[in-house]
Design a protein around this nucleic acid. Structure first.
Lengths: 269, 269
DNA sequence: AACGTCGGTTCATTATGTGAACCAGATAGC
DNA sequence: GCTATCTGGTTCACATAATGAACCGACGTT
């Protein structure tokens, strides 16, 4: 581990709950020597990555980060931040993956990626996703702004026999999605297509959209579901990260629960 | 110079005009060995500060910056407090406005705003502002901590024919700025760019940064100067208030003097 | 095929990072 | 007016980790 890596890892200890950290405290957190930590902080300070609160001598993140982030945003817009993650997801699952973004009360498709090695595969060619009938849409309703539920209720068009068309049906779906952390849609929009999704978040901590995998229903075994879910988690984390956000702890906990739960089921079966 | 500092200084070479840089090119820019630069980039990459464009193998700023910048702004909300004021300033003056923040002995650009209605306008694409050659920098030297003067003297690089390069030149500029309450730089950093600035203060009563307007020199009439100065005063007051500070009485007095003085001059002319 | 790039790698040399011990200043208990 | 224990910051002998010339294979031109 290079000394630069060690120095930069100090930055990970800053958080919303602890935005300013004293030298001794940071030593303890990082498990490193005080002199070393001090020199690392000095290097970070000369680069503008941290600064000292002149009153308390505690360290906090510095102003250089603002410009660099601005430049990063200009260099790599959202679509570019999702694309590579998406193709990795499609590759790992062997199914079609796509990303949606929530803008106002509408969920737009941003980018889709088809896995090459299945001859029969889901094709995503809708540009606005119905909230009540797609895995991404349900994810948005479950983890997005509250008014989205009413918007979804306002247009409960039935696409297939499985489409939820009553407010109670929808509420039941949403609540189970809140429990598991995964959106789910079993042939509710198109017959033979079963989808799973996970929410992604932006810098403000609000839902920014969803990442989803659409599979052909006949192929959708418990094993595949398990694989897709675990891949969705890393994809959601990566896209969220690329967009400058963080996954809320509640979502991470729900994922952890449903993944270990599925594992347990899988083992007993 | 620590190796961490060297590694971090690589990041300063990224700019809006050159957001992606190849290894060899970055070596030349940084004036360092290729192997060294490569290792530095690797360290930065593991920390998420840079990433490689998979297509070109060129390096660009990484996603970790987004999160850290978000946290920085949550800790020290500067951009939110400056942005609306800045756009009002740019709008009122018709010129490019920007805000800088002082951290330690370095003046960082925080945010810039270009007025839409002039086709020729100044573009701010620097991340650390030279103390001796910019209106903001001189403002910092004049109203910031005393040691800043020595720091400025220590690096009196000449950018244009008008750049002050001796300690006495600098002292004269600083003293006139202390009299008027406005930083001023007439083509001292870039030819054809003339700037005016005003200091901004934080809750502790110390200088926190500067707000400035950069104009094209050929457009810079006494009338425009008068307008910019009076708009700068309200902008500096507003940003200072948003940052939880107050303008020291001495500065307010200097502003009052130079505004009425300019008015008087204008009237007699 | 010869040449110039490019991104990336190797290895002997040595500069640089390391941490126990130390210092000065605050704060607290008595 | 003590000692005790924090804090941020500094010193110095020592060993680890940074360094850069030379090298590699790949790609593109000439």
């Amino acid at each position: 581990m290079s000394s630069t890596t060690k120095a930069l890892s100090l930055l990970t200890h800053f958080s919303a709950s602890q935005p300013e950290i004293g030298l001794s405290q940071l030593c303890r957190m990082a498990g490193r020597d005080k002199a070393t930590t001090y020199r690392h902080l000095q290097a970070l300070e000369t680069a503008g990555f941290v600064e000292q609160n002149p009153a308390t001598k505690h360290y906090r993140l510095g102003p250089a980060l603002m410009q660099l982030a601005q430049l990063r945003e200009a260099t790599v817009p959202r679509k570019d931040g999702a694309k590579p993650v998406l193709s990795a997801l499609a590759d790992a699952t062997g199914e079609t993956a796509h990303v949606t973004v929530l803008s106002g009360q509408t969920l737009y498709g941003l980018c889709a990626c088809e896995a090459p090695h299945n001859s029969i595969r889901a094709v995503i060619d809708i540009n606005t996703f119905p909230l009540h009938a797609t895995a991404s849409g349900l994810c948005a309703v479950a983890f997005g702004p509250q008014d989205l539920f009413d918007v979804a209720v306002a247009s409960l068009s039935g696409f297939t026999a499985a489409t939820p068309t009553t407010q109670t049906d929808l509420a039941a779906l949403v609540s189970s999605i809140r429990d598991t952390g995964f959106g789910r849609a079993n042939q509710t929009y198109e017959a033979e297509i079963q989808s799973l999704s996970a929410p992604v978040f932006d810098h403000s901590g609000h839902l920014a959209g969803a990442v989803a995998v659409a599979s052909v229903a006949t192929r959708f075994t418990p094993d595949l579901e398990q694989l897709i879910k675990s891949e969705l988690v890393t994809a959601a984390r990566n896209i969220t990260r690329n967009w400058g956000g963080t996954i809320p702890p509640g979502i991470e906990a729900a994922w952890a629960r449903s993944l270990t739960h599925s594992n347990a089921l899988e083992r007993t079966s």
